[in-house]
């Protein structure tokens, strides 16, 4: 039986664009182009490498997002994933991480899995808690923040590089892992991969398909509520120190006032 790998990916606003919020304080997705979260490309890459090493594996990419999120799936498919699952439902708009993890967990169970691979965090929300939430909801071990990961004989093995120590971790499958941006450069889609991507199956699911109630998710179901959003003030010119013999003293005084020294 082949190894079933599910990679969770997110469609995020392009960080180089002018990102804004809509009136309901959710991300204004119409204002800026979206793309596959760069940190999730590492997840796709590791899943593909594990699949290639195993020789008998199927990689499914999964996303929860609006219509345009299909672009993120398409990119992952063009990199080499075998099929995709797109959970899309108007009632999902505004869902927080708790709700998102519930939807992802249902979709992963629906798809069937031996290994779930996530990036270390999304590049927009940057919370990095989805892997842990998923492991909890799926009732399987979590091995997170890996910079190296391999699968053999029903066991996933990984290396986590911390500030103070490097840990070697193992878990029996099924399991959830997350990989960091140090895990290995993500491949570029090849011409053949791009041409093949269009023909690969993309399964569309909504909340009904997953047996979820609209009240459990969405803006209303979120555990946190954003009251207001204020843009960071534009950078100001700053303080210019003119050196007339005692510039060093002025600099030291400035840094001391800012509590840097």
């Amino acid at each position: 039986m082949s190894l079933r790998i599910v990679v969770c990916v997110k469609y995020v606003p392009d960080a180089t664009g002018d990102r804004r919020f809509a009136e309901d304080t959710t991300t204004d997705r119409d204002a800026v182009d979206g793309l596959l979260s760069e940190l999730d490309e590492y997840g796709v890459e590791q899943a593909l490498r594990i699949a290639e090493a195993s020789g008998d594996a199927e990689v499914t990419v999964l996303t929860v997002g609006p219509d345009d999120a299909k672009d993120a799936l398409r990119k992952a498919l063009s990199m080499g994933a075998d099929k995709a699952v797109h959970v899309n439902d108007d009632d999902i708009h505004g869902t927080d991480v708790i709700g998102t993890s519930a939807i992802l967990a249902k979709a992963i169970e629906h798809t069937g899995f031996d290994l779930v691979v996530c990036g270390m965090a999304s590049t927009d929300g940057t919370m990095g808690v989805v892997p842990a939430l998923l492991a909890e909801r799926l009732g399987v071990p979590q091995v997170t923040l890996l910079s190296e990961v391999t699968v053999a004989d029903g066991t996933v093995t990984g290396r986590r590089d911390g500030d103070a120590a490097t840990e070697l971790l193992q878990a029996a499958l099924p399991a959830v892992v997350s990989v960091t941006d140090q895990s290995g450069e993500a491949r570029y889609p090849s011409f053949k991969g791009i041409m093949a991507a269009k023909k690969k199956p993309v399964t569309a699911l909504d909340l009904d398909d997953l047996g979820l109630d609209a009240g459990q998710v969405g803006l209303a179901g979120a555990w946190t509520a954003v009251q207001s959003v204020t843009a960071r003030p534009a950078r100001t010119a700053g303080t210019v120190v003119k050196d007339e013999g005692e510039g060093g003293t002025q600099l030291a005084a400035f840094l001391a006032a800012q509590k840097f020294i």
Binding site: R74, S78, Y188, P189, S190, F191, I194, M195, A197, K198
Partner: peptide
């Protein structure tokens, strides 16, 4: 086509 645009994106990043 969409595929040609995707190819452009991929080659541009590379």
């Amino acid at each position: 086509s969409e595929e040609h645009e995707m190819l452009r994106d991929a080659v541009r990043s590379l």
